[in-house]
């Protein structure tokens, strides 16, 4: 009993003492410490015929490559009776599909599933790959100064904007497909107004005047609805960009306050935040798609 205790004690204590010594040496060695520099616009690495390729674009290529490789590896040898890898991914996708169907219903859930899951995986892998050790440490020399080769794609405002625009156009497309031109009458609701004007002209003044007020209110509500659709783009963009940038800055600051130890907690937090942001982006898209294709009460 005592021998076992001593053995655990010795191996563990060696580990902790060595880490403590390393930390102490790190604190007191006269290394030159650079102040952490934070650049909000992504730096340009190279350009193709005047078209700038920034480091966040390269990071999205890395993300796409990783997703492609995972997809090819999983679906390379598909069997009717799945192996271990295939079974795991089938279960994951089944869970996603169940969630999608429970929100959008069976008919539309099948159509929205690819869009929603693509957005989810892309945002998730952008966030998680940028937490890999060494991701932001690679630097290249571009003529005048060194820039990072990779930078978390979500921390460049253009990537969230692009995904938000894709989500917006998908919502409008499916709304138009479900309701035809009548989808636009949700925004430009002139019908009740013209009907009441017609009533005034044909002599039913009293009910016409009542309808006039309602018509103006409905017109205004429609314009507000149109406005809210455009505000969604802004809120999607800023939510993802702000969360991811704040996470990167948080980790940077914590690393410089307490090296090595405390930052692990914040890495865990950032893993969670990345997952939640991906979930929110995809679920909100799904809910907006469902709202656009739902039957209007007319």
């Amino acid at each position: 009993m005592s021998g076992q205790g001593r053995r655990i004690l010795s191996s563990r204590s060696i580990f902790f003492v060595s880490i403590a010594i390393l930390l102490a040496v790190g604190f007191f060695l006269p290394f030159e410490r650079h102040k952490p520099a934070i650049h909000l616009p992504a730096a340009e690495v190279f350009n193709i015929a005047g078209f700038p390729i920034s480091n966040s674009v390269i990071a999205t290529w890395v993300t796409m490559a990783v997703l492609l490789v995972i997809g090819i590896l999983v679906t390379r040898r598909m069997k009717l009776v799945p192996g271990r890898l295939q079974a795991a991914f089938e279960m994951l996708l089944g869970m996603c599909y169940g969630l999608c169907e429970s929100i959008a219903g069976e008919k539309w859930g099948r159509k929205f599933f690819p869009i929603v899951v693509t957005i989810f995986l892309f945002v998730l892998f952008n966030a998680w790959l940028s937490l890999f050790p060494g991701f932001g440490s690679l630097e290249v020399f571009t003529g005048e100064h060194e820039v990072e080769l990779l930078r978390g794609a979500n921390t460049d405002i253009n990537t969230p904007l692009a995904i938000a625009l894709i989500s917006f156009f998908c919502v409008e497309f499916f709304g138009l497909r479900a309701h035809g031109v009548r989808y636009l009458s949700e925004f430009f609701n002139f019908g009740p107004l013209f009907r009441s004007i017609g009533q005034i002209i044909t002599g039913k003044v009293k009910s016409g005047l009542n309808g006039l007020v309602t018509g103006f209110i409905l017109l205004f509500v429609g314009i507000l609805e149109l406005f809210s659709h455009f505000v969604r783009i802004l809120s999607f963009t800023l939510r993802l960009f702000g969360n991811m940038t704040a996470g990167e800055i948080l980790i940077l600051i914590v690393v410089f306050l307490v090296p090595f130890t405390v930052v692990t907690v914040f890495y865990g937090l950032e893993l969670f935040v990345g997952f939640i942001q991906a979930l929110i982006f995809s679920i909100l898209t799904l809910v907006f798609l469902t709202l656009a294709t739902a039957h209007h009460g007319e």
Binding site: L40, S235, L238, G242, N243, T245, I280, I283, L284
Partner: peptide, 28 residues
């Protein structure tokens, strides 16, 4: 839970706007 996460996202977005203004003031 699903509804809670959704509504939290809406509430959080407003905080993020303030955060972005702070970030832009601080670093740009």
């Amino acid at each position: 839970q699903t509804a809670m996460i959704l509504v939290t996202a809406f509430a959080e977005a407003i905080g993020i706007y303030a955060l972005i203004i702070a970030l832009i003031l601080a670093f740009v």
